[in-house]
Design a binder for these strands. Structure first.
Lengths: 248, 248
DNA sequence: TAATACACACATGTATACAAGATTGGATGT
DNA sequence: ACATCCAATCTTGTATACATGTGTGTATTA
């Protein structure tokens, strides 16, 4: 693995202060990317000053970014004793998967019962009900589209706040959800299962649609646990092989 | 109404700096209370400096508090142009009521299907299944206990994250939900309906329990809209009668 | 040698100073 | 009289200085 992997967020030292947008937003994004890339491992401890120096900024926007990440559950602060990346808690993720099942089943129920004219639903049909030769192959892109599929189900059901809450859940589980699309068979299965769910909704077969959806999400939930453990292990190995890092 | 109502958050000027806890937390609480008491009306605009002076603090903790309130949907910031209390949006609140229905129905389903041994469930039975002479009369207290009833349903179903999300929803709708308990009949109805729901769950009559729950929440949702409009109107009248205030 | 106490470095929490853009009000020109 | 332009003021965003509590390492003592 390239050593530059551990230098995410470092701005090239040439230009003085490009400041393309909000400093706080930049730092928020960069920190989140580092956590997602396992460049910051769960359990790692760090200080605001340390992050500020890496990002070439002051503590003020760093603190703002950290508080946002804290509210989203990625980091924790100990009173006057530094921050740490929140350790993995599989019950946490599995609970969130179950909330997804509840929300998305409710959305499917409403779609089967009522109107299916929402633009979001049209987009779903156009994207996922395509012949196999038009399917995407890139795992990361399919992962993004999978997230979009499930969120658009909620949007199409017409409840904005439910869609917002579902989106926040997606943000929280994305760090492990991506790992589900690192294998080609899972990508193909995703296309098939999404297609089946949509066809059942169009035909208003409520129970079948809900059953298909439930097992589709449950499959991801079951798969993700072992993949995550593997990824965490290899990330720790890489970190130990590279520069010395507090692992715990 | 007493004029001191509009001076919430003012610390008595005697003691120099009591600082009982986090400044940022104090300001967060005080601002939230002002918004809930309609001392800050939806649409009111204000600046960080203004709040800092009222709270006798610097802008730093004020900003932290405001960002928290922003994430929770109570205030909004306009780029370099001040903050404002988020205007009321009834679709927003009604969407949240519908999310509550979805989450709580799912919890009832799990309670009817599975174990009912969770301590939270025992507390529910002990509090709500009491003879009428032991019931509370204070509207504000019953409002708090109503919130607790619905949240404990989720807790008892065993999904911590669902309970967390449900709690965040409760925080958002509390500002209008309280208004539903300003009349005595609603208090009595709440006792009756909660009792009926619990009895149906104990007897594992799933459909009946879900039906009762759904109509119970729907009743609140329907009631709240007109009460809120009335309260907003009278709060604006009071503000106009008192000192001059930006109304919109 | 082991345990304890103390001092120093460092952590976050808060206050203040500075930067840059948005708004507003008045002055000016038509 | 009305519209337009410009400057002063006010806004948030960022940097930095200060306050206060925590933890650790070392020195001292039993």
């Amino acid at each position: 693995m390239s050593p530059s992997q551990r230098q995410l967020g470092q701005r090239p030292l040439g230009q003085p202060k490009p400041r393309p947008e909000n400093m706080a937003d930049r730092i928020y994004q960069a920190l989140k990317e580092q956590i997602f890339a396992f460049a910051l491992l769960p359990g790692d401890r760090f200080s605001e000053t340390e992050v500020a120096e890496r990002m070439q900024a002051s503590r003020t926007p760093v603190r703002e970014a950290l508080y946002r990440l804290q509210k989203e559950g990625f980091v924790e602060v100990q009173f006057r004793s530094g921050w740490q990346v929140r350790p993995f808690d599989f019950e946490y993720f599995e609970d969130l998967y179950d909330v997804r099942i509840v929300l998305e089943e409710a959305a499917v129920q409403r779609l089967c019962d009522g109107e299916q004219q929402h633009p979001a639903f049209a987009e779903l049909l156009a994207f996922w009900l395509v012949p196999p030769e038009l399917r995407l192959g890139d795992g990361a892109e399919v992962s993004r589209q999978d997230e979009r599929f499930h969120n658009l189900l909620i949007v199409a059901s017409g409840n904005r706040q439910m869609a917002q809450i579902h989106w926040e859940i997606s943000e929280k589980i994305r760090i492990i959800r991506r790992l589900d699309f690192t294998k080609a068979p899972r990508v193909e299965a995703t296309y098939n299962e999404h297609g089946a769910i949509l066809r059942a909704i169009v035909r208003r077969r409520t129970d079948e649609a809900k059953r298909l959806l439930r097992s589709h999400i449950a499959a991801s939930k079951a798969e993700v646990r072992k993949i995550t453990l593997h990824m965490l292990h290899s990330a720790r190995s890489r970190a130990a092989q590279g520069q010395e890092t507090a692992i715990d």
